[in-house]
Design a protein around this nucleic acid. Sequence first.
DNA 1: AATGGAGACAACCGCATCTGC
DNA 2: CGCAGATGCGGTTGTCTCCAT
Length: 306
Amino acid sequence: MGRPPCCDKIGVKKGPWTPEEDIILVSYIQDHGPGNWRAVPTSTGLLRCSKSCRLRWTNYLRPGIKRGNFTDQEEKMIIHLQALLGNRWAAIASYLPQRTDNDIKNYWNTHLKKKLKKFPTGVDHNQDGFSISKGQWERRLQTDIHMAKQALCEALSIDTSSSLPDLKSSNGYNPNTRPVQASTYASSAENIAKLLEGWMRNSPKSTRTNSEATQNSKNSSEGATTPDALDSLFSFNSSNSDLSLSNDETANFTPETSLFQDESKPNLETQVPLTMIEKWLFDEGAATQEQEDLIDMSLEETAQLF
DNA sequence: AATGGAGACAACCGCATCTGC
DNA sequence: CGCAGATGCGGTTGTCTCCAT
């Protein structure tokens, strides 16, 4: 009755990924782009199941992922989105730039659940003086989305023909164009070399155990102790902690990063909101009076809600 | 210094959904 | 339209680290 497993369990490696495996996976994605995960293990020789490869990429290797501590704003955002959406982590992640659903889920389970237990309140489990009604929250979400929509309108009307990686317009995301893969990933090849160098520097031993690799991974998650090679690999600036659907939320992404994200299906922080916005943009029925009202909400008013 | 418990997070598992034939 | 394979998602587990004793 049950479907056969996604991969042949025999000979499939489990447990923490080693740096070597990471490099193989990144190299493959450089060449072929994310997707077609089924082919990854066979093409790369990785003894991993396709799901494991996808997960490793989307939760860890994919550029644009912010690691380390969650900011207060992010925390509040998660709390309210969870109240609104429930445990739909992927949906929540789509509103949180640079965070993966797995990250958010972990953070919720390890931090926020306990926190909320400590502060049982009536209004959307709010705390820290951050108590707004669900209606307000929905309204604010709509406002945020509307703002992004407006920005996209502007960007498109200003210069729709320009193919420059203009971050202001859709964070470099152009729904009508697929990224050029070869050139997109080419620059990462040298980054992988840097990555290797970095690992060599950080590990005196030539061979590393899985636990060491895990440790390396954990270190990288601390932000401050991230191996510089990892940083350089994706040219990722993790200092940005903006939350709402503002234009600059992914402004620190490099064009390369944006293109990488375009390739990966989840596109956590950019694609989902923008897709919605695009849909609304071109949806003839989108302009309701209610939304007109939302247009009138000032940025300041919205900001004050936080 | 040793050790046990708690916390944190990467990764796995299984079900749901999507997609192509 | 139905089926099978691929992919996505959420829950859960395993393991490592940190800290208190």
